[in-house]
Design a protein around this nucleic acid. Sequence first.
DNA 1: CGGTCATTTCAGAATTCAGTGAAGCTTTGG
DNA 2: CCAAAGCTTCACTGAATTCTGAAATGACCG
Lengths: 230, 230
Amino acid sequence: MVAVERSAQSGFSRLTEALSDPAREAMVSALFGGKALPAGELASLAGVSPQSASAHLQKLTEARLLSVLQQGRFRYYRIADDEVAGLIENLVNVAARGNQAERARGLPTPLRQSRTCYCHLAGQLGVALRDGLVGRELIVLHGRQASLTEQGLAWCRAEAIDFKPGRDPHMRLCNDWTERVPHLAGPFANAILKRLIETHALAPHRVPRALRLMPKGRAFFERLGAPIPF
Amino acid sequence: MVAVERSAQSGFSRLTEALSDPAREAMVSALFGGKALPAGELASLAGVSPQSASAHLQKLTEARLLSVLQQGRFRYYRIADDEVAGLIENLVNVAARGNQAERARGLPTPLRQSRTCYCHLAGQLGVALRDGLVGRELIVLHGRQASLTEQGLAWCRAEAIDFKPGRDPHMRLCNDWTERVPHLAGPFANAILKRLIETHALAPHRVPRALRLMPKGRAFFERLGAPIPF
DNA sequence: CGGTCATTTCAGAATTCAGTGAAGCTTTGG
DNA sequence: CCAAAGCTTCACTGAATTCTGAAATGACCG
């Protein structure tokens, strides 16, 4: 064998290898909702023993796909960051494409309209949120990041959104895989979604990650000046 | 074992499994340039024997990541479609992130400015192209797809771009992973890139997939009314 | 038609990987 | 301090993957 110097390339096989097991897929899928879950729960969700789960979770964290947060005797695992979440969503979409002879015009409508991506808002509603915030100059985009303006801060207070801008960039753009246009990700986007859910402006849908837009939510987008396309 | 009904989920582990081998990564990376390559060449590029390569290529095609085109006694493999190409680019980006202690502000500048993604134009120039075409109403977007207008057809003739619209959608939006904004993919986008390269408006860069913008290319974007951000 | 080339298929051996039971570590609670 | 809970580590087994050499397929060429 000539050993053609199998150069490390970008090395994405480290990532895909970590994601190439059904049990690990189940764990990542369970965590994709955005919540952090303890190892034991992930084990039973994936249908494997605690020991196996531990090994799987180690692989996933070593690949930097998950991060751990130890609290007492529990170890809470979660998706490492939005970038990884975006990758997972991309994988899910490409995988779904081949499976079911193409779902007519893409995903089921509820998922297209409004859903959670990791722990922020995605779908048509996610895009509308971004457009609204940009249009009212509550946030400004610079390249792949964004930040809150003074008016944006005031808007947060008015809408009772619990967010204090830290020193690091508090927003990023995350590509929306149904709308093909970026929506907002990061701590600020998470705070908005949290507020929308706790005020019942958005409610969980029958379809797993989808959300239902309630009258209160419609009013929220109305106030923001963001037209809702449905 | 309790058999917690390890439901098929979205089944992305089929995809990731196919991508989880260094040799297969090397093959996919080699094909990412957009060209179709015969099995033997892929074997030597990946540094494996023809027999091994054959097995690897079978896995990749079964996962619908690659497609085959038989010509005589050669079998040309290539990336299945833009959707897969987008996934690969996403993987490369997430993988690169963890590797090199973060490359300052993302990718090396040449790649950010202009590069090939599968076989269409990406990076800041790719985004500029989309903006220009949309702004001049040479194409119209509907959701995740786009189509050429009458004026667009005329523009093609004027620019000597070899493209005849078929009956199927000839354009899709592909998320740009450096700019976080979609650029154009699909046959039409490929035809444009082909023309830009054959007229030496764009030339290969020292950096693998990057492109250099030549005076002729600058003029092309000038005519289109698409501002170049560098 | 025989020979070669590109590629695949088919056996086997070697390696790698997921799962299991036992044991260890750390935290919690009495 | 002891006992239990939550999780991990270790050593090992069985299964899945990968590689290699030999042989088969099909296309091309003289």
